[in-house]
Amino acid sequence: MYTLTGFVEHGDARARELGFPTANIALEGEDTLDGVWVAYVRCPDGNIHLSCVSIGRRQTFYGEVGRLLLEAHLMNFAGDLYGQLLEVELVHFLRPQMTFDSAESLTSQIHKDIEDTVAWKAEYGHYLPPTASVAKI
């Protein structure tokens, strides 16, 4: 498990346009955590949300030159997190980053990633407190 913290910033709203709003946190450094993850996100109010998290450079739209970004789609969440400090615990690796030939094929994969996230929680249960060290971004 890996735990990251960072402040939510405005993105280009592409995920929202595709139907999957995300909380975006810019990352620095190497791409060692690249991929799609099951995660739990702790909000400033203390609520914890199951999340499907993508870490990468959004290569479908930006190739290899996009900036490294954590994008968290929080399940059962509606609200504004801009400027808020989030704690993101990555608990299960789902798949590596992929390049898609269209927004439609990306959208189909995101639906599958969310289904896989929910299925993982159904099989492995409730949230466990962080056990790894916290890396501040």
Rank of each mutant, 00 (worst) to 15 (best):
R16Q: 14
P44I: 02
A72T: 07
L18Q: 07
E9M: 05
P130H: 01
M75I: 03
F100A: 06
L68K: 00
L90A: 07
F7P: 01
C52W: 00
I114Q: 02
T32E: 10
H126L: 12
A13N: 14
E9R: 05
F100Q: 06
V134Q: 10
G66R: 08
T32W: 06
P130R: 01
Y127A: 05
W37E: 11
V134Y: 06
E30V: 05
C52K: 00
L86N: 00
D101N: 01
L69P: 11
G19V: 10
T5D: 00
D34A: 15
Y127D: 04
L69Q: 15
A23R: 01
I55F: 07
D113R: 07
N76Y: 10
E28L: 07
L106C: 07
L74A: 07
C43A: 12
G79M: 06
R57L: 10
F77M: 04
A135F: 09
Y40F: 08
L128W: 08
S54Y: 14
E28V: 05
G6M: 00
D116Y: 03
L33E: 11
L90R: 08
L85G: 03
T5M: 02
F93Y: 15
V38S: 04
F93M: 06
T131R: 14
V8Q: 02
H92G: 04
Q84D: 03
Y62K: 15
G79E: 09
R67G: 09
G35Q: 09
F7R: 01
P44Q: 04
P96I: 07
V53M: 00
I137S: 01
P21Y: 10
Y127R: 06
G79L: 08
P130K: 01
H92W: 14
H92S: 14
Y62S: 14
E30C: 02
G63M: 06
C43W: 01
I114N: 02
E28M: 04
L33C: 13
M98H: 15
H49R: 13
G125E: 09
Q84N: 01
E123L: 13
H73K: 05
S133R: 13
H10T: 15
L18D: 06
T32H: 10
A23D: 02
V36Q: 08
L27C: 02
M98Y: 11
V36P: 08
E17L: 14
T131F: 06
A39Q: 05
T99D: 11
V36W: 06
